[in-house]
Amino acid sequence: MHSYKTRSVLRLKIDTDRLGMAQITAEDWPLFHTLYRDPAVIRLCFDEPPLEEIKASFESRLPVWTKTSKHWLCLIITLNETGEKIGVTGFRIHNGSAEVGFLFQPKFHGLGYGTESLKALLQWAYREHGLQSFNAVVTEGNIASEKVLTKCGFTLKEVIPNSYKIGGKLYADHIYQYENNGFIA
């Protein structure tokens, strides 16, 4: 069972049995920086950005998020049992659809945290904000992320060949979509 709490008017909190998710704060810079620099995390997502770009991306996510925000809602994912910060998840709304994304520290890959956190995020977005349309762009070869999306009810809608370059190599973009009609897989 998932619970949905708001710590205060300004900071949202989403809890699952194993995880807590709260909007990113300035104190979360070390995790954010590590996620955007770790080759095991980004190898099928993007080339390592310059430090200035990582800082700008981080700072753009710090303002309090509302449904009318143009910036990403970025949630830090924490293990309830230990309080350890393990990754980020979130979305940004564009043209009525929420584009979702997530990154986890490598030692937490394959433990079901991606699926658990994304399901809770989708439920919260639907219940609290009425969001029904979600999408995700996954780089060809990122099978683990594709599995998370399909477990959460997303379906592959389009493959765009040679769409994105990482490490000098062109990859296809896999476009996933999910329409929520009140039920999350």
Results as ranks from 00 to 15, higher is better:
173 D>A: 12
149 L>C: 02
86 I>Y: 01
74 C>W: 00
165 K>Q: 08
154 F>N: 07
157 K>T: 14
185 A>H: 12
116 E>Q: 09
2 H>D: 11
71 H>N: 08
45 C>W: 02
14 I>S: 07
50 P>Y: 00
97 S>D: 08
5 K>N: 09
46 F>A: 04
24 I>E: 01
72 W>F: 10
72 W>Y: 05
32 F>N: 11
39 P>Q: 01
123 Q>F: 09
130 G>A: 02
116 E>W: 05
128 E>C: 08
45 C>T: 10
10 L>S: 13
17 D>Q: 08
86 I>L: 05
28 D>Q: 03
33 H>I: 04
129 H>R: 00
155 T>V: 12
132 Q>C: 15
77 I>K: 03
73 L>N: 06
137 V>P: 02
94 H>N: 15
42 I>Y: 12
3 S>F: 01
110 G>I: 12
69 S>I: 15
62 L>H: 01
45 C>R: 08
144 A>T: 05
16 T>Y: 00
103 L>M: 15
50 P>C: 03
90 G>Y: 00
104 F>A: 00
98 A>N: 07
177 Q>G: 12
4 Y>C: 05
167 G>C: 05
85 K>L: 03
97 S>K: 14
60 S>E: 06
65 W>Q: 00
132 Q>F: 11
54 I>Y: 03
74 C>A: 13
19 L>A: 00
60 S>M: 04
107 K>C: 06
172 A>P: 10
160 I>H: 01
59 E>K: 06
147 K>H: 06
7 R>L: 14
130 G>R: 02
85 K>V: 07
51 L>R: 05
24 I>L: 10
75 L>E: 01
92 R>H: 13
26 A>C: 09
61 R>A: 15
151 K>M: 06
143 I>K: 10
18 R>I: 06
134 F>Y: 02
2 H>V: 15
9 V>R: 11
33 H>W: 04
106 P>L: 10
73 L>T: 09
5 K>M: 08
78 T>Y: 00
42 I>R: 14
79 L>R: 07
174 H>F: 10
90 G>L: 03
21 M>N: 06
125 A>C: 14
173 D>C: 09
38 D>R: 14
93 I>N: 00
31 L>Y: 05
110 G>Y: 06
15 D>P: 05
161 P>F: 10
7 R>N: 12
33 H>M: 04
174 H>V: 11
180 N>E: 00
26 A>W: 01
178 Y>G: 07
135 N>K: 12
38 D>Q: 12
98 A>C: 13
9 V>L: 13
24 I>V: 15
164 Y>S: 11
9 V>Y: 02
21 M>P: 07
156 L>W: 02
29 W>M: 10
43 R>M: 03
36 Y>G: 14
33 H>T: 04
102 F>R: 10
177 Q>H: 14
72 W>Q: 08
180 N>V: 07
175 I>Q: 02
178 Y>T: 09
146 E>H: 06
124 W>D: 03
85 K>Q: 10
89 T>E: 11
54 I>G: 10
21 M>R: 06
93 I>Q: 00
169 K>P: 12
113 Y>Q: 04
164 Y>G: 12
113 Y>L: 06
